[in-house]
């Protein structure tokens, strides 16, 4: 009964209500402002934040919507990035080939890992996704043909034959913006659809959904594959931004950071993940400017976010909105 009365609220929250458009308008203004006044470095910083936000968005679909906590999502980012790097190393720089290959590769990996991991629940799910990510991490480390742990320099960014030039930082930034916006819209629609309702229902009460005749695991697997593919897209962009791939992109610390962003932003609201990613990237940048011991500040900040800030940044905004 309680779940039923709660549902409409959380659906509204998931669609972002009036907050999400504001987030994207603010973001567009930030990119524009950085370009006009703050200088190229800040455009790049925002681009990086948008890419990270895309990965966090992917993870929020799993964590917030489906209640599946994956501690291995950096692996899919890594697969996307490596697909670009390895193809570029073999002289295939066309984005028309690189991007589809990268997305298919991360989707395939997500299908396999998801199918196996979804046999478990709860903490076991956390750990088994970690296990698969660690295996991929060690596999990347031993790819000595592609630099092993030294990583691989990408000498040419993905080439789209003059339609868009990723070498131009402004174009690249706006491309990331458009991709982030489209993925957000797509995922928000998905989460408001029957598909999303089944996932949320299964998160609250798996047995009930199963009794209602839904093949819960199949729905979850589809969510896992979508999430992995979006994370792979983030990897493609990250590889193009840094012009470099390395196994470090796949380490469990990175997966942990993605989770931290989702919680920081406020789980399940999708736009919260974007806010969380921005807060994370910008805070790291700000704090590291003050002191090399920035973790002394950042660690307690994370603790406080959990202890005090229930619902993360999105929850805070929602509360502010209610007061008004």
């Amino acid at each position: 009964m309680r779940a039923a009365t709660r549902a409409p609220v959380s659906v509204r929250k998931l669609e972002g209500g009036s907050v999400a458009p504001l987030v994207f308008v603010a973001l567009a203004l930030a990119v524009l402002g950085a370009d006009l006044w703050a200088g190229p470095y800040y455009v790049k910083l925002l681009t990086r934040a948008m890419i990270v936000a895309l990965a966090a968005l992917a993870l929020d679909l799993l964590v917030g919507l489906a209640g599946l906590v994956s501690l291995g999502h950096a692996a899919f980012v890594g697969i996307g990035a490596y697909a670009v790097g390895i193809l570029a190393e073999h002289g295939i720089t066309s984005g028309w080939i690189q991007w589809p290959v990268a997305l298919v590769a991360s989707a395939a990996a997500a299908a396999v890992i998801g199918a196996l991991s979804l046999r478990t629940r709860g903490v076991h799910f956390i750990m088994i996704t970690l296990a698969f990510a660690q295996m991929l991490y060690f596999a990347a480390n031993s790819l000595s043909r592609y630099g092993g742990d030294d990583g691989l320099t990408i000498w040419n960014r993905s080439d789209f034959g003059g339609i868009v030039s990723l070498a131009d930082r402004r174009t690249f930034a706006w491309l990331c913006f458009v991709l982030l916006l489209s993925v957000y819209v797509a995922l928000a629609r998905l989460s408001a659809s029957r598909f999303g309702r089944v996932l949320r229902g299964a998160k609250d009460n798996e047995r009930r959904m199963a009794a209602l005749g839904f093949a819960v695991t199949r729905f979850r697997l589809v969510a896992f594959v979508i999430s992995g593919t979006v994370a792979g897209l983030a990897g493609v962009l990250l590889a193009n931004l840094t012009e470099f791939v390395a196994p470090a992109y796949m380490s469990w610390h990175r997966s942990g950071e993605l989770l931290a962003m989702v919680v920081l932003g406020g789980m399940g609201s999708l736009y919260g993940a974007i806010l969380g990613a921005f807060a994370f990237v910008l805070l790291e940048e700000l704090l590291s400017r003050f002191t090399t011991h920035w973790a002394l500040l950042f660690g307690p900040f994370l603790v406080l976010v959990v202890l005090v800030g229930r619902g993360g940044i999105a929850g805070l905004l929602a509360r502010l909105g209610r007061i008004r």
Partner: peptide, 29 residues
């Protein structure tokens, strides 16, 4: 930290104690 986390979900616990790791590692350094 921990006593505030007893009734929280696993994700909150992971995040908060991850913050503790960051802090203590850096403090020791």
């Amino acid at each position: 930290v921990l006593r505030f986390l007893y009734d929280r979900n696993h994700l909150d616990q992971v995040l908060a104690t991850f913050g503790v790791i960051l802090f203590v590692d850096e403090a020791v350094r």
